[in-house]
Structure formats: structure tokens, C-alpha cells
Design a protein around this nucleic acid. Structure first.
Length: 423
RNA sequence: GGAGAAAUGGCAGAGUGGUCGAAUGCGGCAGUCUUGAAAACUGUUGAGGGUCACACCUCCGGGGGUUCGAAUCCCUCUUUCUCCGCCA
């Protein structure tokens, strides 16, 4: 959520910067400003009424103390009139404030100046590319075929017990999955991130805090009976740790990491590109979350990018880094770098990480602030990134590391898997 | 699931109808003393709205109610603790 004060003071800038997202925010911004003005007028009228009735109440108290009952009753009648007045002003104020709030919820974050204009993922800007695309053996297979051939992932079994998009990992497949999780967590904790295990269900307030609600309502699995949501990413529980927090400057940086399964309904996304592990309803992911001082958040973002880069380097997977264009940028993000691994047998890039700076957008919803040097409370910045999303990494490993007589395990993982080949 | 107790400022903890935004302690900040530090002493220290700045208003877990007036009384929800039951 953008800060109201900022919108008020920088109306034109807000409109201009949102154009990078292909959004014409003119009318929304106008309406926000109009509603805010209305709200403040109502507030000040209500304040005055309340001040009067407060004064009256004190007088009544004094009159009772000095036994001037008649006089007191007279003032009581006056007070009742004011009460009616403040009640209707209060109702009006609430309606206006709610309208304003829900309107503010519809405005996405302002893109960072470096975000290129563009409509779709076609317009994302490739900023870095590294790693060799292996020359595959004759008769190389896509990962879903390999999964069957070596009996390590069973999509049909998952479909039988739950539905499509819920894979079952088996034997060395399951072990490789566990190895990847352990490897990523170890690398992250070594880089200074504190490891957490968190609930996989969150309440509605948390959904609003990180911006999944109200705009991505349909993307999360919802448990109506208890009004809880299955987390689409560990970002949601972790970032919400810091909801309603007032930090000190010395608390920065806060660095968290967690492994969780992620649940996504992915309503409406079907087609040729969702085969195998490419797009699932449940997948595993290790996540990084940082809470930063605003002056340091972009440096922190660079640090996270470098960290994720190192993981991919160690796994010796060919990857590239994209700067997302305005049209592809998530609702809450100011700047996002996507990491994609080249899946050789499918001959396509797979997104394995997304690293973003949300600046104060989430912090504003979360009321996550810190006390600065001069004692003022200022919104902190939040960031997050995947390190990494498991299924697509697994797909990349299976496809890129396949040989005549089995699938090689990347060297760094062997201590974790206990085997160096799936055959 | 049943029964009871509780929820107050960064923390601890008073406050049961009227100048209570809230005693006190700790912590934080500033100062005195000191070569410096500690100790001691003095002062200061919640958040939001509003204003050029004041004024002023709101907030004592959330929501609703009683009253001229609520941290204080009533209803309700949530959470925590204790006891009982069930259970990985």
C-alpha cells in the first residue's frame, strides 16, 4: 500500500510512474485525494463535537459534586444532542475511511526508475547470463519422461490421491529433493540468514499484510471452516512476523530463511507448458526474507541476487537473470529480478527464483516501522527471494545432467544425497 | 471439547464510573559529577489523526452496548494461563 501522504504530495509522480505498469491511475488518484479531503473534514467536525461534549461532561461532573442537580440535568439534555450529532458524523467518517482504504488497496507499488516499460514477459530485460548449456545425449528426454524411466517422481499417483499438480517423489527422487532443501538452507544460514520453520496456514490478516489479499484471493487455497489460507510462499508467514513491529535501527538487517511447501491454485493456467514439474499446485521452496533500513534496501537486493547466483553457479546450471518489465512486475514489488534455468531437453527457460524489493509497500500494510535517529517512526523496507524453487531446479538437474547410463548428481549435492547417480 | 483466571505504554505492573493518556519500577535518551566509564542524582521518554505551529480528537486485546461521562459496568469474539477430558 502506498503512503497516503506520498500520494497527496506527489500526485503527478504517482500517475507517471504507474504508467510503466500500463496503468492509468489518474482517476483513482483523484478519487483517493478527494476521499481523503472528505475524511479529514469529517474528522475535524467530529473532533470538535466530541471536544464540546467532553467539556460538557466535565461540567456535569462538577455540578453533581456541588449538588447543583437541576443545572446538571439541563446540561445533560444538551449533551444528548451532541451525542446524536457525533454519532452520525462518526458513521459517515467510517464509511468514507473504508472507501478510501479499499481504494488504496487497489493501487500497486510504484516501479523503481530502472524498471523498463513493457507489457508481458516478452519485454523483460535480460541482464546476465552464465553457464554452459550441455550438449545432450542422443535420445535425451524431458524430465517427466526421466522421472518415469527412473521411477523417482509419480505424477499419476499424486493425481490419484489428491489431483493433478500434486506430485509424489519416490526413492532417490525424494532423497534428492531433501538434499536440495538441506543444501539451500545450509548455504543461506552460512550467509547469515536465520532458519525458521513456520506454519503452513495463515490467517486473513497475514494475507492482507503481504498483499496476497485482497487482489490475489483466488490464487490461495482457503479453508472456510477456520478462515485460514494455505501459504503460497513462506514470504507470507515470515514477513508477517514483523507486522505491527516497531524496530530500532540497530535491529537491521533482519535476515530469515525457511523451507516450506507452497500451495497455489493456479486457476486458469493450463496448457503445454505446465507438463511435469513445470507448474504445480504444491511445491517446495526455500525462501529468503529481509527487513532493511530504507537506505540499504537496494544494496541488500543486490546481495540477494548475488547469493542466489552463487547457488546456481554451484549447481552448475545454465541460468540467466531478468529485470522484470512494468507489465510483468508483481503488484507489491518495486523491482524484481527473475532467475531462469535453461531446461535443455525442453529447450526453454524455467523460472526458479524471483528476488524483489517491496520498499515500504508491504511495511505500510504491516505497520512495520523503526525509530530513526531523530526519534521518528519510519516504515522499514521488506525484500524477499527464492533460494530456490525446488521442482524446476529438479527438472533442470534431471534434464541437463542426464547421461547414457543415468543422471549425474551435481557435485555439491553428493554429500547430501549420499549417491552420485540416479540409474 | 468442559471449568476457571487474565489481556493496560519497549518491558514489568498499579489503577473498578468523572481533569487517567494513565501511578510506579526497569529500559531508552539528554544532562550534572568524572581524565573516561560505572554508580548516584536531575530531566525527558507511547501511537495515530489534525495544524505552518498550537489547539483539539482517538487509542488501556477486537467489536458492540449502558451512561451526560467508561481502562473501570454489561454483551460478544479472539488470544494466553491453570485444571479436567481426548490425542500425534
Amino acid at each position: 500500500m502506498l503512503q497516503l501522504q506520498f500520494i497527496r504530495d506527489n500526485k503527478e509522480e504517482v500517475i507517471t510512474r504507474l504508467k510503466v505498469r500500463n496503468i492509468d491511475a489518474t482517476s483513482v488518484v483523484e478519487e483517493v485525494i478527494a476521499l481523503d479531503e472528505k475524511r479529514r473534514t469529517l474528522q475535524s467536525n467530529l473532533d470538535n463535537t466530541l471536544a464540546q461534549s467532553k467539556k460538557l461532561s466535565n461540567e456535569i461532573g462538577d455540578l453533581f459534586k456541588t449538588k447543583q442537580v437541576d443545572k446538571a440535568n439541563e446540561l445533560k439534555a444538551q449533551s444528548l444532542v451532541l451525542k446524536e450529532e457525533s454519532k452520525s458524523l462518526g458513521e459517515n467518517l467510517n464509511i468514507t475511511a473504508e472507501k478510501l482504504q479499499s481504494l488504496l488497496y487497489t493501487i500497486p507499488n510504484l516501479p523503481h526508475p530502472s524498471v523498463p516499460a513493457g507489457n508481458s514477459d516478452q519485454d523483460n530485460e535480460e541482464i546476465f547470463k552464465e553457464g554452459e548449456v550441455p550438449t545432450l545425449i542422443k535420445g535425451a528426454l524431458p524430465h517427466w519422461e526421466l522421472a518415469k524411466k527412473y521411477d523417482i517422481i509419480d505424477l499419476d499417483l499424486g493425481a490419484k490421491i489428491t489431483g493433478a499438480g500434486f506430485p509424489v517423489y519416490k526413492g532417490k527422487g525424494a532423497r534428492l529433493q531433501r538434499a536440495l532443501i538441506a543444501y539451500f538452507l545450509d548455504q543461506n544460514t552460512q550467509a547469515g540468514y536465520t532458519e525458521y520453520q513456520v506454519p503452513h496456514l495463515v490467517n486473513e490478516t497475514s494475507g492482507y499484510g503481504t498483499g496476497q489479499l485482497p487482489d490475489k484471493e483466488g490464487q490461495m487455497y482457503h479453508i472456510g471452516e477456520d478462515n485460514l489460507y494455505l501459504i503460497p510462499t513462506a514470504e507470507v508467514p515470515i514477513t508477517n512476523f514483523f507486522r505491527d513491529q516497531l524496530l530500532a535501527e540497530k535491529d537491521f538487517p533482519i535476515c530469515c530463511t525457511a523451507y516450506t511447501p507452497c500451495f497455489r491454485r493456479e486457476a486458469g493456467s493450463y496448457g503445454a507448458h505446465v507438463r511435469g514439474l513445470n507448474r504445480l499446485h504444491q511445491f517446495d521452496k526455500v525462501e529468503l526474507v529481509r527487513v532493511e533500513h530504507p537506505d540499504n534496501s537496494y544494496k541488500a537486493l543486490d546481495g540477494m541476487v548475488a547469493h542466489v547466483q552463487e547457488l546456481l553457479r554451484e549447481l552448475k546450471l545454465p541460468y540467466r537473470i531478468l529485470r522484470l518489465c512494468g507489465g510483468d512486475l508483481g503488484f507489491t514489488a518495486a523491482l524484481t529480478f527473475d532467475f531462469e534455468v535453461y531446461s535443455t531437453a525442453q529447450e526453454r527457460w524455467l523460472e526458479v527464483s524471483s528476488v524483489s524489493n517491496f520498499e515500504s509497500f508491504q511495511a505500510n500494510r504491516l505497520k512495520l516501522r523503526y525509530k530513526n535517529e531523530s526519534g521518528k517512526n519510519v516504515l522499514a523496507h521488506t525484500l524477499n527471494g527464492s533460494s530456490l524453487a525446488l521442482p524446476r531446479i529438479l527438472a533442470g538437474i534431471l534434464e541437463n545432467y542426464q547421461t547414457e547410463d543415468g543422471i549425474q548428481i551435481p557435485e555439491v549435492l553428493v554429500p547430501y544425497t549420499g549417491f552420485d547417480k540416479i540409474d
